[in-house]
Computed example of a mutant assay.
Amino acid sequence: MTVDARDPRAVGPRIRMILPTLTPLEARVARMLLDWKTLDDRTTLKEVAARAGVSDPMVVKICKKLGFEGFRDLRVALVEYNGLPTSDLTAEVSRDDSPAAIVEKVFRTAIRALEETLAILDRDAFVRAVDLLHRARIRDFYGVGGSAQIARDVAHKFLRIGIRANVHDDAHMMLMSASLLGPDDVVVAFSHSGRSTTVLDAVQAARRRGARVIAVTNYPNSPLVDLADAVLLSTALGSPLTGENAAARIAQLNILDAVFVALAQRDYDTAERNLAETMSSVRDKRR
């Protein structure tokens, strides 16, 4: 999985991706830096160390762990990131917010998730995923909870253009499905955390049968990513009320919308014909 380090929108996601690999102290300092909206090009290393309650060398070490050359490199990146129009789009919902304010905050959080997911999306992995799905004999989608709902939405879109996919959200059904797959088949595994044991067990079983795997997740350092041939990564800021899942779900649906369009483009005439047929088949069910 690659992230375009030159895109300022990728700075926040890039740091958040690495947080789970840090020690608790390092993660605390990294979060402080990420949340420091008034940090500017005059902020010194000593100020950061004093505010975090750690030594200067510790701050430099953390900057390097986050993938930057040092404190100055990280400072420049964060100043650019905080200066983006999207940096003000996320605000925490409070118990005193009006309905209008809640709508504004929820929508803006989703917009930011889309912008940042677009910045980190690995274009090569996207093409690999489209290629695998296009050539597949069987397409099985695995997911539980909210991830299963994303899988169903994607399968519905695919069916509209004549691409059939099976959605499994039960542990036994996933394992049964995986036991019958082969090298010409593809599993798309949906897991926000990338750590769902139900999904991981089924993916491992599918891999043993030679099936290829596409992972749709929010965490690049998760076990699911290690099992995947292509990773479609989303990102979203956490929230005490809605968590990351709500905004990440919107980002993941958009990624798969792009996959849907790319697949339709591979055989546009057939996709257009199938779309007309499937739309016609349900027209009489509308009043």
Rank of each mutant, 00 (worst) to 15 (best):
V199L: 05
L200E: 06
L200S: 01
D201P: 10
D201Y: 09
A202P: 07
A202E: 15
V203D: 03
V203G: 05
V203C: 02
V203I: 04
V203P: 04
Q204C: 13
A205N: 03
A206C: 05
R207H: 07
R208Q: 12
R209C: 05
G210K: 09
G210I: 00
G210W: 00
A211F: 03
A211I: 07
V213A: 08
V213F: 08
T217Q: 09
T217E: 06
T217I: 00
T217K: 05
N218D: 15
N218P: 06
N218S: 15
N218G: 15
P220Q: 09
S222Q: 03
S222M: 10
S222K: 04
S222G: 03
P223V: 02
L224P: 01
L224W: 07
V225M: 01
V225S: 06
L227R: 10
L227V: 11
A228R: 04
L232A: 10
L233D: 05
S234Y: 11
S234H: 01
T235H: 15
T235W: 12
A236H: 03
A236I: 02
A236M: 08
L237V: 13
L237R: 15
G238T: 01
G238F: 00
G238Y: 00
S239A: 15
S239W: 06
P240E: 04
L241V: 11
L241I: 10
T242L: 12
T242R: 09
G243V: 08
G243A: 09
N245T: 14
A246N: 06
A246V: 10
A247V: 10
A247Y: 05
A247G: 02
A247N: 06
A248W: 06
A248N: 03
A248L: 03
R249C: 10
R249V: 03
R249M: 09
I250V: 15
A251S: 02
A251G: 01
Q252F: 06
L253W: 03
L253V: 08
N254H: 13
N254Q: 13
N254F: 12
I255R: 01
I255A: 04
I255Q: 00
L256H: 03
D257W: 00
D257I: 05
D257C: 05
V259D: 02
F260E: 04
F260W: 06
A262P: 03
A262E: 14
L263E: 02
L263P: 09
L263H: 10
A264P: 05
Q265P: 01
Q265R: 13
Q265A: 14
R266M: 10
R266S: 04
R266N: 07
R266G: 04
D267G: 01
Y268W: 15
Y268C: 15
D269I: 07
D269W: 05
T270C: 00
A271G: 07
E272L: 12
E272Q: 14
R273Y: 08
N274H: 10
L275P: 01
L275F: 14
L275Q: 08
A276S: 14
A276G: 11
A276M: 11
A276P: 07
A276F: 12
E277S: 14
T278H: 11
T278F: 12
M279W: 13
S281F: 08
S281K: 15
V282H: 02
V282L: 00
V282T: 05
R283K: 15
R283E: 11
D284K: 03
D284R: 09
D284N: 13
D284W: 07
K285N: 09
K285D: 03
K285A: 10
